[in-house]
């Protein structure tokens, strides 16, 4: 289990590099487009790619953010619980969080397949949309695995 967790965490960090790359790409593309506009030129599709890469930033930083305890929760009540009861509540919240992301991952995959079959593309450059939805499926999938390790850990803590 420990090995599995380490493996997932290494992946989460690699994914986050993709997210960071997407931020730099969005910045560079926007600036280049604005710069070219001075010369009455533009990069077709800048607008749609900024939005689509925005989704890459979030999908691929999701697991890393969870790992860095970056998601916001109201903690003060549970903090007053005993260690065991904290683990028990932790088990339930981690479990339901995991289910949430399993569902989002699964349904994003189906949605991506629907978009692929329907042939939906971006408005200007006609770039396919579905890979970005697959990105969400992938990011949420990794997030589910990470939450699975958390669930197991809380369960162990609760059974102590």
């Amino acid at each position: 289990m420990f090995k599995f967790e380490k493996f997932i965490k290494a992946f989460a960090e690699k994914f986050n590099w993709i997210a960071a790359g997407a931020v730099v790409f969005m910045m560079g593309l926007t600036c280049l487009d604005v710069f070219l506009r001075i010369f009455r030129k533009s990069i077709p599709g800048t607008y749609e790619f900024i939005g689509l890469f925005g989704s890459v930033v979030i999908s691929f930083s999701l697991a890393y953010t969870t790992m860095a305890k970056g998601h916001i929760a109201v903690e003060f009540l549970v903090q007053k619980f005993s260690q065991r009861r904290q683990s028990l509540t932790g088990f339930f919240t981690d479990f339901f969080s995991m289910i949430l992301f399993v569902v989002v991952s699964w349904r994003s995959f189906l949605y991506a397949m629907e978009l692929m079959r329907a042939g939906e593309v971006s408005l200007t450059t006609h770039f396919p949309i579905y890979p970005f939805v697959l990105g969400i499926a992938l990011g949420c999938g990794l997030q589910s695995l990470l939450l699975f390790t958390d669930t197991v850990k809380s369960l162990k803590g609760a059974m102590k």
Binding site: A118, G119, E120, V121, S122, L123, H126
Partner: peptide, 9 residues
């Protein structure tokens, strides 16, 4: 129709 380009060729 045009908001989902490709779906309605």
């Amino acid at each position: 129709f045009s908001y989902t380009k490709g779906r309605f060729p």
